[in-house]
Amino acid sequence: MAEVDFTKEEIDNFIGFHDKIESYLYGKSSGSVYFMLNKNFSRIGRALLFVKQAREARNLAYKISNYCSAFETLFSTDSAELSHKLSERVAFFMANEFNKIETFKTIKKAYSVRSKLTHGDCLEQKQIDLLGELSTSIDNILRSIFNKILTNESLKETFDSPKNKIDSYFEALIFDEKS
């Protein structure tokens, strides 16, 4: 594993950012001491808990499955065409940061792994060989998503809104209309 260096300023900035996130979640009764399946728990907080579980998982397939749950928590509003709709929404949401087609394909691959794990199926060896790379890719996408959401009050409000507002946001984003 590569060594990473941080300046004191970078660490101080991270501490400030972390404190803002914790304050936001506390204000939403959505910190780690609250039950995450409560109706009033923040979607953002729930997704962050899935990311925490993913990062603690030793098995790459479980890690990817938890990352998929984080995507689902943030981007889904129903179970219809879930894999496609989620992949599309993430790709359009992150279009300025990542290539849309590559993002779409990456999320689809992750959902394929999650589906096989959840339904007790097996992976092909070539899929197993790519789990580390896939896990790193979706971790990077999620990190960018959270940075984008958590630094923008309007996006925080949108992602912690009722399902119909989230649907409207993505319809406008995907079909290039004003939301």
Score class of each variant (00 low, 15 high):
Asp5Ile: 15
Phe6Asn: 05
Phe6Lys: 04
Phe6Ala: 07
Thr7Asp: 03
Thr7Tyr: 00
Lys8Gly: 07
Ile11Asp: 02
Ile11Phe: 06
Asp12Gln: 15
Asp12Gly: 01
Asp12Glu: 15
Phe14Thr: 09
Ile15Lys: 03
Ile15Arg: 07
Ile15Val: 13
Ile15Gln: 07
Phe17Arg: 15
His18Leu: 10
Asp19Met: 14
Asp19Ala: 15
Ile21Ala: 08
Glu22Ile: 11
Tyr24Arg: 02
Leu25Asn: 03
Lys28Glu: 09
Ser30Tyr: 01
Ser30Phe: 00
Val33Ala: 10
Leu37Phe: 14
Asn38Pro: 10
Lys39Gly: 07
Asn40Thr: 12
Ser42Leu: 01
Ser42Val: 02
Arg43Cys: 07
Ile44His: 02
Gly45Trp: 03
Lys52Cys: 04
Lys52Val: 11
Arg55Thr: 08
Glu56Asn: 09
Ala57Asp: 10
Ala57Arg: 13
Ala57Lys: 05
Arg58Pro: 06
Asn59Ser: 07
Leu60Lys: 04
Ala61Glu: 15
Ala61Ile: 02
Tyr62Asn: 15
Tyr62Glu: 12
Tyr62Val: 14
Tyr62Thr: 13
Lys63Cys: 07
Ser65Met: 14
Asn66His: 09
Asn66Thr: 00
Tyr67Glu: 02
Ser69Ala: 14
Ala70Arg: 03
Phe71Trp: 01
Glu72His: 05
Thr73Arg: 02
Thr73Gly: 04
Leu74Gly: 04
Leu74His: 07
Leu74Asp: 10
Leu74Ile: 05
Ser76Asn: 09
Ser76Pro: 02
Ala80Trp: 12
Leu82Trp: 04
Ser83Glu: 13
Ser83Gly: 04
His84Trp: 11
Leu86Cys: 11
Glu88Trp: 11
Arg89Cys: 00
Val90Leu: 02
Val90Cys: 09
Ala91Asn: 03
Phe92Gly: 00
Met94Asp: 00
Glu97Ile: 11
Asn99Thr: 12
Asn99Leu: 10
Ile101Ala: 14
Glu102Ser: 13
Lys105Asp: 15
Lys108Pro: 08
Lys108Tyr: 08
Lys109Thr: 09
Ser115Tyr: 09
Ser115Pro: 00
Ser115Leu: 00
Lys116His: 01
Leu117Tyr: 11
Leu117Asn: 01
His119Thr: 04
His119Val: 05
Gly120His: 02
Gly120Gln: 02
Cys122Ser: 15
Ile128Met: 13
Asp129Thr: 06
Leu131Phe: 07
Leu131Arg: 00
Leu134Cys: 04
Leu134Lys: 10
Ser135Pro: 05
Ser135Met: 03
Ser135Gln: 06
Ser137Asn: 13
Ile138Asn: 02
Ile141Pro: 00
Leu142Phe: 00
Arg143Ile: 15
Ser144Met: 12
Ser144Val: 05
Asn147Met: 14
Leu150Met: 10
Thr151Phe: 07
Ser154Glu: 14
Leu155Lys: 01
Leu155Asp: 02
Phe159Pro: 01
Asp160Ser: 01
Ser161Asn: 11
Ser161Ile: 00
Lys163Phe: 13
Asn164Gly: 10
Asp167Pro: 03
Ser168Lys: 12
Tyr169Cys: 08
Ala172Trp: 12
Leu173Trp: 08
Leu173Ile: 11
Ile174Arg: 00
Asp176Trp: 06
Asp176Gly: 11
Ser179Cys: 10
Ser179Pro: 08
Ser179Asn: 14
